[in-house]
Design a protein around this nucleic acid. Structure first.
Lengths: 72, 72
DNA sequence: ATTATAAGTGCTGTTTAATGCTCTTTTTAT
DNA sequence: ATAAAAAGAGCATTAAACAGCACTTATAAT
């Protein structure tokens, strides 16, 4: 997943869960500004920040081996 | 995957591919120092840095939904 | 159309990641 | 056992993430 996909995933997941940026900020401990920055595509969060966000959204950061094979 | 798992995964993958930290640094454009920091568990890389590393190792950063169900 | 709520942005200070250089420690060959 | 290669760590500098605040823009509801 490249950057924009990651952002889209986070954003969509947040919306599905009906959490506002403010809510996510509160729950995750990540600053609201940082979230806004990230979701608007202007950020480069640290792994820790990404994990905090993902965590609250019931997701996790994963490292996947690119197989080359059509792989969903 | 929490931090230590990510590190372990990167490290192992690098070793499987027989790439040294120096080699990975060169190939990825990430500073050698940064790699050392990260692999020795003392770093908190940015997403961009992590992606550069993963990329060279034929891996990608993924966001996975935690199902709770035993899920490999 | 107005109002309320959420999302995005400029400005700013503080913290810390990224990097290079040098040195030490560990691992791997010979 | 020793030499060579790789990995780890201290120190210092630069760049950028993190964060809050205030303001604007966009979206949603009445």
């Amino acid at each position: 997943m490249h950057f924009s996909e990651l952002i889209k995933t986070i954003k969509e997941r947040r919306e599905v869960l009906q959490v506002t940026q403010q809510g996510l900020a509160d729950l995750s401990g990540v600053g609201l500004r940082t979230l806004k920055q990230f979701e608007s595509g202007k950020g480069n969060p640290t792994l820790l920040t990404l994990q905090k966000i993902a965590d609250v959204l019931g997701m996790e950061v994963y490292l996947k081996i690119k197989t080359g094979t059509p792989n969903k």
